[in-house]
Simulated scan of single mutants.
Amino acid sequence: MAKILICFASMSGNTEDLADLIQTYLEEDGHTVFMEEMDEIDPSYFHEYDGSIIGSYTWNDGDLPYEAEDFYDGLEDEDLKGVPVCVFGSGDTAYPKFCEAVNIFEKGLMNRGATLMQEGLKIEMDPDGEEDVVNCRRFVLNVSKYLTEVNI
């Protein structure tokens, strides 16, 4: 199966909980998953994996968190043509730009030529409801299908 990187930024633990859930489902599907905090890696790592999944919470009113800024800026230096990626994030619908970090990362990745394996996953706060679990599982199934049928 595929070798997958999950990199994430989490402050309250919600995005990390989501990353853990995604990792669990990917491993249940037979993939090898490596998990890294976003502020400890750079986008050049994507080339070492069959697919990469980025997770970030949204700060304030639609901004990337400070832990994600350097990583995002590093996208400018990378040619990600054809590199399979997707994005997930946690957010709060009390803010007008719910999970905007997901949109920002998707746009930045596509501008560098990356291929989106799956539309971004947006979860309200912590992934603890049944709908969140179902959406997370569907997200992973689509990633697994992409990596199995298209990329591997």
Rank of each mutant, 00 (worst) to 15 (best):
M1G: 12
A2E: 00
K3S: 12
I4S: 05
I4Q: 04
C7W: 01
F8K: 04
F8Y: 15
A9T: 12
M11T: 10
M11R: 09
S12F: 03
T15F: 00
D17K: 10
L18Q: 03
A19H: 00
A19N: 00
D20G: 01
I22W: 00
I22R: 00
L26I: 11
E27P: 02
E27R: 08
E27F: 06
E27V: 12
D29P: 00
D29M: 14
G30H: 12
H31P: 02
H31V: 07
F34Y: 08
F34C: 06
F34M: 09
M35P: 00
E36R: 12
E37G: 03
M38S: 06
D39M: 11
P43W: 07
Y45T: 11
H47K: 13
E48G: 03
D50A: 12
G51A: 15
S52I: 10
S52C: 15
I54D: 07
G55L: 10
S56Q: 01
Y57P: 02
W59P: 02
W59Q: 08
G62I: 13
E67A: 14
E69M: 14
E69A: 07
D70V: 14
F71G: 06
F71P: 06
Y72G: 03
L75R: 04
E76M: 12
D77P: 01
D77V: 01
D77K: 09
L80N: 11
K81E: 11
G82R: 07
V83L: 13
V83N: 01
C86D: 09
V87R: 09
F88L: 03
G89L: 09
S90R: 07
A94P: 01
A94Q: 11
P96A: 11
F98H: 08
E100K: 14
A101S: 14
E106S: 05
K107H: 08
G108D: 05
G108K: 03
N111E: 15
A114P: 07
A114R: 06
A114F: 11
M117Y: 08
Q118G: 00
G120C: 04
K122E: 10
G129R: 08
E131T: 14
E131Y: 04
D132V: 00
N135G: 08
N135R: 13
R138W: 10
F139V: 04
N142A: 07
N142V: 00
Y146K: 01
Y146E: 04
I152H: 12
I152Y: 10
